[in-house]
Nucleic acid binder design. Structure first.
Lengths: 189, 189
DNA sequence: TGGAGTTTCCTAAAGCCTATAGGCAAGTAT
DNA sequence: ATACTTGCCTATAGGCTTTAGGAAACTCCA
């Protein structure tokens, strides 16, 4: 009996790769076992169950994304920061569609609390420091930015904009221009 | 042997209800058979397979949503139309989370072509007639609106805004105000 | 009205996935 | 070298999908 050296960490990282290749929904304990050339039951010493695997992949993806976003934000402000931050999301989703899908995986409250989710919100708020928005408008703007980033990336990766002019990159650029303009001229009722 | 009177249509409608109750991902041929108190194999005379069921539920939801949107748009223009249209999406997603999730289900090209997807895009364009946007900015704006609506609704139903002030309804209203303002002052590079 | 034909639902079975229990061997510590 | 722990195994059970083939219920026409 050869020991392959399975660990929870290796399994989760391989699961993330698998997600990018076949889609997050298609990530199964069976497929992962196949990838390590190991029997399925062996994985259950390292993973509680299938749900646990998916949750851990989601947390990994959220961490990765937060790290890239933090990196992109360093030393930038205003529109520069806005665009860099937005690009991180879009680029990550295009390079790692399965991982990105994982970030949309519903987390139970404890997992959510332990996740990088809070950092994402904090970074969005940091971007808004470059604009002049007081509460509660700042929160409204945080929610708007989150919606646009997630919505655009989600529709684009789902193929919603494919095969139709103009180029999605062009729309993305112009939408970020528009958001910048909107944040500088946020309407008060 | 009692005949229950299964038809593709009844199955799809029941599948949509099931989706709203247990989530679109949990819709299975087995669960549907259970609901009709019928053996699983019996459904395969009416449905090609599990994928077929999900696709049909997606098409049903897209139709319903398009019908409601068309209704909301009738006799409205400008911001009035924008808000009414957006509310249709949000209200539909909150009332029918499973069906809404179904509308995000990837469709193969033929199904997509036969779907109400095109009408949704057309209606978004119709809203923009109340604003002064020439191509390609109109398309950029269509994509922005689609992203915001889908993104916000998706994050909200995923619980992203729950248990945090301010009220999501308030953010929604202010975001629509902001979009209206943005569309009236669309920046040109 | 009484088949003939069609439709609807059934049983049976195979394949894949999740999950648990219990066992043996490879590594580790004394 | 022996005892302990850990890692991966076999075996098993239950659920979902899908196909094949059969029998009962409905329909339609002579």
């Amino acid at each position: 009996m050869v020991r392959v050296g399975l660990t929870t960490d290796r399994l989760v990282r391989a699961g993330a790769e698998l997600a990018d290749e076949v889609g997050f929904d298609q990530v199964t304990v069976s497929a992962l076992a196949r990838r390590f050339d190991v029997k399925v039951a062996s994985l259950y010493s390292h993973l509680k169950n299938s749900q646990d695997l998916k949750t851990r992949i989601a947390l990994l993806a959220l961490e990765e994304l937060a790290a890239r976003a933090a990196d992109a934000l360093a030393g930038r402000a205003g529109k520069d920061a806005l665009v860099a931050f937005a690009d991180v999301y879009r680029d990550y989703a295009r390079a790692h569609p399965g991982r990105y899908a994982a970030t949309r995986h519903p987390l139970d409250p404890e997992a959510a609390a332990a996740s990088a989710g809070g950092r994402h919100a904090q970074m969005t708020r940091a971007i808004l420091r470059g604009y002049d928005l007081a509460e509660p408008d700042q929160t409204h703007a945080v929610r708007l930015l989150g919606s646009v980033f997630h919505g655009y990336v989600s529709l684009e990766t789902a193929g919603g904009f494919s095969h139709s002019a103009p180029d999605p990159q062009e729309s993305w650029t112009r939408i970020l221009d528009a958001l910048d303009s909107l944040l500088r001229n946020w309407p008060t009722p």
